[in-house]
């Protein structure tokens, strides 16, 4: 891909989660680790942001107030099929997460997840897409 062909560029991540406190701190920590993170707290907002901007990767929470994470995933995959999408899910909702895999998600992580795990998954996704 174009973006991964320039490794010096920051990886652009769209983080979608309705828990504001969570997205804010994760954004700060990921930015510090050399990523360009945009956060939104609802599915509708996420779709609007994606329409205007390009992202290398998206991380979507399954449970949100306005829109189901799976719905967001489907829309994302329609809009930008080549963008990898990671799913965040609560423990015990793996079934829904696996369902997400069938709709084109790259992988899923159970919340609360450690930041290193999330970064690792993102890098994996980037490497996979670059191939």
């Amino acid at each position: 891909m174009e973006d991964s062909a320039r490794p010096e560029n920051k990886i652009r991540v769209l983080l979608v989660d309705d828990e504001e406190g969570f997205v804010n701190v994760v954004k700060k920590r990921m930015n510090r680790r050399g990523m360009d993170v945009t956060t939104v707290t609802s599915g509708g907002e996420a779709v609007a942001v994606l329409r205007k901007n390009d992202f290398d990767c998206a991380v979507v929470d399954l449970k949100m107030e306005d829109m189901d994470g799976i719905e967001v995933l489907k829309i994302f995959k329609k809009m930008v099929p080549e963008m990898p999408v990671l799913i965040l899910t609560g423990h015990g909702s793996e079934k829904a997460a696996r369902q997400g895999l069938t709709h084109g998600a790259f992988d899923y992580l159970t919340k609360p997840c450690e930041l290193p795990d999330l970064l690792e998954k993102i890098r994996e996704a980037m490497a996979q897409t670059a191939r």
Binding site: E19, G21, F22, V25, V26, R29, K111, P112, C113, L115
Partner: peptide
């Protein structure tokens, strides 16, 4: 889960 996740992340942020 969510508050705990935030707490853990915030402490991680302090660490950062």
């Amino acid at each position: 889960n969510n508050p705990v996740a935030i707490m853990v992340e915030e402490s991680g942020w302090i660490g950062d």
